[in-house]
Design a protein around this nucleic acid. Structure first.
Lengths: 202, 202, 202, 202
DNA sequence: GATGAATGAGCCTTCATTCAT
DNA sequence: AATGAATGAAGGCTCATTCAT
């Protein structure tokens, strides 16, 4: 066995990822090497090119929503389960969104490949769709278009994370936001029955 | 009295904007000049720097949602009005989202300034919030947190536009998506009354 | 007669000269035009090129030391006359030195031409030489090499002006410096006669 | 362990210095690189900028006149010692003067910093002043203002070097000039005693 | 005659990549 | 395997000069 490389591949990739996430593709390889504590030569020995490093460092992380969904369908209180699911999705999106944006911004067309991945974001969306289908089949929610429903949830969560990312201040914590979201969509916003449509407002 | 300008400032900015939107800040000024049909010298005479050109070309466009809202409150069928409003927002977001992302990716901190603008995106969100407040006051919708409601709508629309932008294929047209969105949130997803629910929901 | 040009040739040259003296050849023609209150086009209409403008603006000024000398030889008190002559030379050098340096720095070989001019700096040196020759002939000074003498005076004055120019602070006014200079060179620094060479200590 | 440097820092600086001295700050970095036998990239790796290269290459050289002075005070024949000192100063000024002028012409304000340096030109002047003070104290020269004396010497030498630099032809070698200078200032130019003076001098 | 928009050559500088050690 | 000196191809930017009005 040769002597182990000084800096582990994982650590190097983590360093590169942090820099790519913070500054985009434009960080120089010199900067990355310095931050990782190795030489530029090493970088190019291990990865063929900067592009290669970027691709490996910025790969989209897996998220087994499918598995989570299966475990949750029909279990416990619907709103509570959905709330928990949403909070997990928020955690995932906080990792995913900046990466997707940096990938898209560099448009190295790796993005579309990543998007197709099992356990990637598209899979997450369809898993959520399946969840709603299953719960509809169980009669736990009204029969609505489950994909639309999934997109409304995903969209609201994505937007929450996105605003957070670009630094627009929020007064609502993620938990509060998700609770409100679930309850509102559950109940709808139609005025209470029997109440005349012309406002009783003051 | 001097030679008249050959290519208009507007045309130049439009060309630059297209290229910035397509390739990000990294397009070379040479490319921009070529595409605009002028020399690099001209570019730098008119704008002090590439940064300046970027700023002027990528400025966030105004959208007077506030005005639209005032005209719509209490008018016609609620769902139809809201649908129309959402479609206008989609058009705005199609312009806005790529610009915001490119601005953020270049993080020249112009972004936060733009975000504060009257008639910018934050204003749009609060206008939508006011819309829901007003309609609530009129009794046309149930009393829910209007900001949350606005964020759910804005988020769903934003996500629709975002997926479109990064090239994730959709089977739903914007109109269909908006219609479904409005109706679903209006009615909620609670199962029809009298239908028993599994679970311990209180 | 055509209508007079807006800015006089002299004023334009004066403006250009000030800028060339302050910043060297590197001031842009744009800057000069702006400072002169005319367009770049005008500059190039009147002078064929920037080089031409530089040449005309930075021409070495005449100084009729020859004439002054003729008027002074044998007149009044020698030291007083010489002092006055030196003060006039200082005034001339204050104009001359920066110009010579800027010309040399740009080494457009105009310098050597200017240096040959009647009434230019070389003429000044030989005029001073003649002065000392004439005063020697009159017996008003001891027979020393008059060119050497001229160079010592010119050199001391040049150095005074040079240090002033590059911003080395002086405690002596020009007048005090010249007075001391004249008197010291007049009297020499040999110890008083009869005094033993081995120091008498303080 | 890495590839060794191919051209030494010293050689590179020497090349740059020669070019800066000949053409001023305006030589292109491309020219310097070519002359030095390396790429522009190398230049900028080693020095942060052209400005930095200029600063390092054109730094004002030290000259320990103070030390020389201490060794000479009271030694040997005064005129001979002074002559030798002056010749050393000439050698120093031949290096110093063009550098000072180029620095001043580029006015990067490094000049004033350099001028303050111990062992720089100001120090040289004050060392010369001390020399004359010491010799005065020893009674080897008449009590004159030693600073003035120093400036006359420095000025004459500076002027000699300056004229040489800008290409004004001289008939006197440096040695002849210095000899004449020393002897003239030593003896003064006052006419021999007993010779009547025209004029009203007191 | 005057203007200033337009130009393109050239400048300083950065950076991914190679290569001798 | 690791290093970092060297490179050269751009990139952003300036500026003397031209030219249509």
């Amino acid at each position: 066995m040769a002597r182990p490389t000084r800096i582990s591949q994982t650590a190097l990739l983590a360093t590169a990822r942090d820099l790519f996430l913070e500054h985009g593709y434009d960080v120089s390889t010199a900067t990355i090497a310095r931050a990782a504590g190795c030489s530029e030569g090493t970088l190019f020995k291990r990865f063929k090119s900067k592009e290669g490093l970027f691709r490996e460092a910025m790969g989209i992380p897996d998220f087994d929503l499918e598995g989570r969904v299966e475990a949750l369908v029909g279990q416990g209180d619907f709103q509570e389960s959905l709330t928990n699911l949403c909070l997990e999705i928020v955690d995932y999106l906080r990792v995913l969104v900046p990466r997707v944006i940096r990938l898209w911004a560099h448009e190295n067309s790796q993005l579309s490949r990543f998007m197709q991945r099992r356990r990637g974001p598209r899979a997450a969306l369809s898993a959520l769709t399946h969840y709603f289908e299953a719960e509809t089949a169980l009669g736990r929610i009204a029969p609505e278009d489950p994909e639309l429903l999934a997109r409304v949830f995903m969209g609201s969560l994505h937007n929450y994370v996105f605003l957070e990312l670009i630094g627009v201040p929020t007064r609502m914590s993620a938990r509060a936001f998700v609770r409100g979201l679930v309850s509102m969509i559950h109940d709808g916003i139609a005025p209470a029955m029997g109440v005349p449509q012309t406002g009783t407002g003051r």
